[in-house]
Design a protein around this nucleic acid. Structure first.
Lengths: 113, 113
DNA sequence: TTTCGTGCAAATTATTTGCACTCCC
DNA sequence: GGGAGTGCAAATAATTTGCACGAAA
């Protein structure tokens, strides 16, 4: 199937993936992109990322890392933060399965202009 | 305006707010709920919460706290985590404006049954 | 009367679903 | 022929927008 998807990897939305791949595969449809991504994410090859937007982004990087979304340009960055800095390990009575951490602000590119 | 909204506060979606208030205010429309929430969130009276879903939830609690979403029942809880545990304070070249932290897993209610 | 909050209904955007088509065994 | 992956086009869902109406300043 479409393994090529994540050679192009950053934190694309479905729409971006679609646009990037249509030139190479003109027959491609959005449906197929959705299919592929859902399949991948079920198998934990990629993970879904929500940074406060309606559009879901996908990340080829399944390691534990946080994200930074630029409020100015909209880019999403990976940020690697030590696990000890990820908040508490456990909560009274709660079984924690996933932790999600993200920041918003201004990225270096935008703050320099 | 509609201050009553956040006497009912937990972490409602627009739909939930709407349903909760229609009995009291039968003329209410979803549009008004959206208007009110957007206004409130601009003025930082409430904040938007995204816990990996398409629907945006709103939180009357603007203090710095994290969230826990139950994968089983779907409830969203506030969890108060000391700031020191909120990951790094600053990142090389990045201007951090907001931090978002949330967990997913099973809540006490669901793990007991 | 001007302005503001409201609410309907239509538009937009993101995603899902139903079904038909083709390629390969 | 039968199953898989694909893709169109219609359906849903969440949210936004355009406009018109009524109450209060």
């Amino acid at each position: 199937m479409l393994e090529y998807l994540f050679k192009h990897s950053s934190h694309p939305t479905v729409e971006e993936i679609y646009r990037n791949l249509v030139p190479e595969i003109p027959t491609l449809s959005r449906t197929t992109v959705y299919n592929a991504l859902n399949l991948f994410s079920e198998k934990d090859l990629v993970c879904e990322v929500n940074v406060g937007e309606k559009e879901t982004r996908y990340d080829a990087n399944t390691g534990e890392h946080a994200h930074f979304k630029c409020n100015s340009c909209g880019r999403v960055y990976d940020v690697w933060i030590e696990k000890k800095d990820w908040g508490v390990e456990s909560l009274e009575g709660f079984k924690i399965e996933e932790k999600h951490l993200y920041y918003r602000g201004i990225c270096p590119r935008c703050s320099r202009g």
